[in-house]
């Protein structure tokens, strides 16, 4: 069975854009390592390893979104909720590196663009929405689930539009007139649907963790939620 993933292949973006996104990814990852180290303690480190492994597993599970079109989890929303934005972006990046080097999934030359879109942009947009929504929505499992779905949809569409922007700046093949506009519309539509799947998977996972071990959900730290967070020991 042929398995495809939402990863940019080798040769789709031109050399200059591939190089520029590699620089963006390197700068972003450096910042994530610096800020992420503050969060990484004896408890978060193994949890972050698990989050990366779990995202790898769920990225194999393509679900249909339209006839002949599928999608899979990107993972930024899940990672941001469970281990925070900095370590979360690093989790997704490690998954992308393993996929590119070992599973021929996403070009090695496209790794900078894939990390920029799926690890940095996806996780950052998700976390900004999570911070706002967790303070506005009711502090219940339903509120947490709604946060996951809304953040999932918007963050996946943001990642997809990141690719469209990169292609506009320097795709390898010049498209016909109006081609890029229709690509942007199609990418937004399919990825909004993929984002709903992402949101549902994320909601089920995070609500399950929050009910069994609320202390292991990074995004719930510091929030006084009688329904979800037990008082700190």
């Amino acid at each position: 069975m042929e398995q495809l993933a939402l990863h940019i292949s080798n040769g789709v973006l031109g050399g200059p854009v591939a190089a520029a996104t590699a620089v963006v990814a390197a700068v972003g990852l450096t910042l994530c390592v610096q800020r992420g180290r503050r969060d990484l303690d004896d408890r978060l480190a193994p949890m972050a390893g698990l989050v990366a492994a779990f995202i790898f597993a769920v990225q194999m599970l393509n679900f249909p979104v339209l006839p002949g079109v599928s999608g899979h989890l990107l993972g930024g929303t899940l990672a941001a909720l469970l281990v925070g934005p900095w370590v979360g972006a690093l989790c997704v990046s490690i998954v992308l590196v393993v996929q590119a080097l070992m599973f021929a999934d996403g070009g090695v030359t496209a790794l900078g663009a894939n990390i920029t879109n799926m690890a940095l942009l996806n996780t950052a947009v998700a976390y900004l929405l999570i911070v706002v929504l967790l303070r506005v929505l009711p502090r219940t499992p339903a509120g947490l689930a709604a946060t996951a779905v809304v953040a999932g949809v918007v963050a996946v569409v943001a990642a997809a539009l990141g690719f469209v922007l990169q292609y506009a700046l320097g795709g390898a093949t010049e498209l016909t007139a109006g081609g890029l506009g229709s690509i942007a519309a199609v990418m937004t539509g399919t990825h909004a649907l993929i984002g709903i799947g992402e949101g549902v998977i994320t909601a089920v996972t995070v609500v399950t963790v929050a009910k069994t071990r609320p202390d292991l959900v990074y995004a719930l730290r510091g929030l006084r939620k009688p329904d979800l967070v037990e008082s700190a020991a």
Partner: peptide
């Protein structure tokens, strides 16, 4: 899992 082309792949072959 679905073996259909994903969102990016299907957009990539448009045209």
């Amino acid at each position: 899992a679905s073996g259909a082309p994903d969102g990016l792949d299907s957009a990539s072959t448009r045209g």
